[in-house]
Amino acid sequence: MGTLRLFPEQASTFAPEVDHLLYFLLTVAVFFTLVIFGAIFYFAVRYRRRSDQELPHVVHGGMALEIVWSVIPFGLTMVMFTWGASIFFRESRPPDDALNIYVVGKQWMWKIQHMEGQREINELHIPLGRAIKLTLTSEDVIHSFFVPAFRTKQDAVPGRYSTSWFQPTKAGKYHLFCAEYCGNRHSGMIGWIYVMEPQDYQAWLTGESPTGSLADNGAKLFQDLACVNCHKADGTGRCPSLVGLFGKTVQLSGGGSVKADEAYIRESILQPAAKVVAGYQPIMPTFQGLVTEEGVLQLVEYVKSLGPKPAAETSPAEGITGSTPGKR
């Protein structure tokens, strides 16, 4: 049966923050519960009916009292809101130097790809102390990537990318759950997160036999799908060059502009006519159904690797993974 614990392990930088907020809320909740229970109990005994003829004096409501017991709880809830929102805001802003990992949910497994090409199913190996940014999507229904020990959860929604990040603080093995009901074997869509000491992680990385980095696989797909025939690197093709595209703002035909992020690249592969770059014809066929979600992620990573390089790639935090920047 295992031993009874009241709080889950704290294994990420968020975990103690969320727990501290929880302690504050618990204190408030216990205080008010005691006040209400105590008052009911005391009044019920103190003013119990002693005769059926009793008629209590009418006590008229006092506006001052009403204001007091509206304003004090309101003040407390605003503390809760601000505190909770600040944690949430930071949870939504992965640091630039975070290690990117791609996650695809499907009934009923988690498929995970590392930058260096290692693939895992229902397991995720990550180095201790390094911020990890997950990019999530789903092949079928909505799933949710939930690691209780990290206090993070993010839905993986088909048709779009979502992100989540955390920084593990304690080596160990932690539960990974799917938290959004996804059908028959929902409760089997679980796995383990392995937080490893950096050197162990290195050993694990080299121990796995990668089939080329994510970007390399993307480059291969780019060849195989004949994308390269039109998207020539020097810009002489019938379609815009993708070199240096990622992160830039693109002018669209028909007016408007869009930032070339993961979502835009994904959309341009699956629904190329949705947002066409100004000066080009909408001649690209759709690759919907021809390339898997994982394949799309590889292509996205390939386009990202064509630059411009994110600042993170050259930051000192690099090196834990040991990969050369040029490899991205």
Binding site: L270, Q271, P272, A273, A274, P282, P285, T286, Q288
Partner: peptide, 9 residues
Amino acid sequence: GVATDQQGH
């Protein structure tokens, strides 16, 4: 007048 991949829309 609508591209094939936009027919869904």
